[in-house]
Design a protein around this nucleic acid. Structure first.
Lengths: 268, 268
DNA sequence: CGCTGAGTTGATGACAATCAACTCGGGTGG
DNA sequence: CCACCCGAGTTGATTGTCATCAACTCAGCG
């Protein structure tokens, strides 16, 4: 299942670029209120900061982690877009999730078990790296963090299941509409954290091939379907920018419920 | 998205049948070591037992919970098989997961948010019901339980993603092979807890329509594909029983890795 | 004995995959 | 500065996998 001709080298994090200049301070971090440390009291943030080991800056289209290989770190995405995916025997990708700032990448309760998916940067990306072999202990000590982690898990579980429903049971048009709305609203909910976000359009660094890999289609078919959606006046994707022209119709087509999509569980 | 002609009545748990005779005792429960309370020390089991509110016995093809509706309980499946699924606008189902004894059904960190999937019994089923509005507090108090819950989440996340890879990127034959091997090994790992488990065959109460709904196919196509797999001498499904005849070839076809499938994270 | 639900089989058709040629725009290097 | 290249996307022609529709079998059951 794992031998596929390509050399499978462990990711060497030493090659990653350390963020130049001073590390950002957790206490002032705009991402924090979305991320794992949401709800961590200010007086505890020095502690958080000590636990964070590095901030890396990663160029577009680089792998952050690779399925089947051990990985020393889990990451909070600080800026940029990434894709999490798995590879079939034929080499085809299935993208599980697009990660946006605040998302946690590579968490697993047992660090000894290799991770089963890969992660790739789509844009230039900055991540905060946490050594995974200490995560479990920290989650045991800090019930607020483990509750927060469970919230985030529940979120991505719901999203994963919604992707499944789409891939298994919906047409190409419905799937793509859903994808666009999902990413549109997630991006908009990040407000100032993603540059280029406007009233009805967002920066959108996703290629048609990525869309295809996320929705179980081919890039050729995405191209055609996208044309249909565009011709219907629902949206445009141009110059790495997604614009929604007719959200109500798009939402109906996609069977997308904004209210459910944007739940971010409050800390309990 | 929710109005679909069928009347959406909240599940009335008062109609459920209380397990006749004495409730099983958690301390002696054979399921416990697989379930949420795995690793809970014996001296704490009285406490566990007090938290469990009911044991219900449910006939085949009844709903345990329904998407979009509030639900007072989360369940540990004590015996039998169940299916967790979501419904598209057209009424088509996508099954996310088949639940086996020990599986936890209906957990969500925030009980106020309605659950987004439905659950249906496939066989007669016995469940232990835990009031969901107390779960969050308990998970905060007991870090061993929240760690265990995260393990179980990670498991079902992995499985969900593997289903996604199959539905999005694999042929009908590959998908079904995967499904059979996955269920076969999960059932076998439950050893004595599922009756009718033998060396290379298990009781298999899943209809072809269920298989179709899990793998993004139609029941007609499942029938044909199943015939191909049978004719190839790989397996047989007959009289609600699955028999694996040629596991190596089946595993290669399915791209199924037994080692990865059976990881149950040890308590950390 | 007929009813019912699950499964089978055949005929047909649709949606998406595949193969291939081509455009377009943005680098890069001569 | 221009030629060239490259990756991304577009478009057309064709194929194929799976869906759909429909008729039928078969076992279980009241």
């Amino acid at each position: 299942m794992l031998e596929d001709g390509c050399r499978r080298m462990a990711i060497n994090y030493d090659n990653f670029m350390i963020k130049p200049g001073e590390k950002t301070r957790c206490a002032q971090c705009p991402v924090r209120k979305l991320a794992l440390f949401k709800g961590v009291a200010l007086e505890n943030l020095e502690w958080t900061q000590g636990y964070r080991e590095h901030q890396f800056v990663i160029k577009p289209k680089r792998r952050l982690m690779e399925e089947g290989l051990p990985s020393r770190y889990a990451f909070t995405l600080f800026s940029g877009w990434a894709a999490l995916y798995q590879t079939a025997a034929t080499g085809e990708r299935q993208i599980h999730r697009f990660a946006l700032p605040g998302d946690f990448i590579g968490f697993r309760p047992n660090p000894a078990i290799p991770i089963h998916y890969s992660a790739q940067s789509l844009t230039e990306v900055t991540v905060c790296a946490f050594p995974v072999d200490r995560l479990d202990r920290i989650l045991r000590e800090r019930t607020d963090l483990s509750a927060r982690m469970m919230d985030m898990n529940a979120q991505s579980m719901r999203l994963c299941q919604q992707y499944m429903l789409g891939i298994g049971r919906k047409s190409a048009k419905e799937r793509l509409s859903f994808l666009f709305l999902e990413l549109f609203h997630r991006a908009k909910s990040l407000a100032g954290l993603l540059e280029g976000t406007e009233e009805n359009s967002i920066a959108f660094p996703i290629s048609q091939e990525d869309m295809a890999d996320a929705m179980g289609l081919t890039s050729v078919h995405v191209s055609r379907t996208l044309k249909e959606l565009t011709d219907a006046g629902l949206l445009t994707v141009k110059n790495r920018r997604l614009t929604i022209h007719n959200e109500p119709d798009l939402a109906e087509l996609a069977q997308f419920d904004k209210k459910l999509a944007l739940i971010d569980h409050p800390l309990l």
